[in-house]
Simulated assay, not measured.
Amino acid sequence: MSTDEDTDQEELLQRLLQHFLSSDDLNELCADAGLPVLIDSNGQPVYVREAVSYDDAGVMTLNRGVVIRLSDGGELQLTIVTSRHPVSPVQIRPPGTRA
């Protein structure tokens, strides 16, 4: 990750969203959240076919974000933009370690 505080936060959230959307079925996520399930024209639940970072998807922007490609052919983008910088510098703790 970068040493710039806001970029660290943006990159972490981008990677977290990408993991979250790639690790479970969309219909299960909707059911867990108490939301309706999207159904395609064949009556099948719509699922996330792919969730990739803007960099990997070739999106021409300086922002961080995730491109979500759905099984029904739909494609959505989630953009992460820093609207306020941290009050103090953030630190990065490696996974699996405790404070």
Rank of each mutant, 00 (worst) to 15 (best):
L21N: 02
D55E: 12
D32I: 07
L17V: 08
D8Q: 11
D32Y: 10
C30Y: 11
D56C: 04
Q9T: 02
G65Q: 04
D56P: 00
L26H: 07
T79K: 00
S22A: 12
L76R: 14
A31C: 05
G74N: 07
D55S: 10
S88N: 10
Q18K: 15
T79C: 09
E50T: 11
T97K: 12
V67T: 13
V67M: 07
D72E: 05
D32N: 11
P86M: 07
L17D: 04
R69E: 12
L13E: 02
G96K: 09
R98E: 10
L62E: 08
N63A: 13
R49S: 12
P95N: 08
G73W: 03
V48M: 02
R64Q: 08
E50N: 15
F20N: 10
D25H: 11
S41L: 04
I80L: 15
V46W: 09
R64K: 15
S22F: 07
T61V: 12
L35T: 06
T97W: 03
E5T: 01
E11V: 14
E28L: 09
R84M: 09
D8S: 05
V66W: 05
E75D: 00
I39F: 03
Y54V: 11
V52L: 13
N63S: 13
C30Q: 13
D55A: 13
G58V: 01
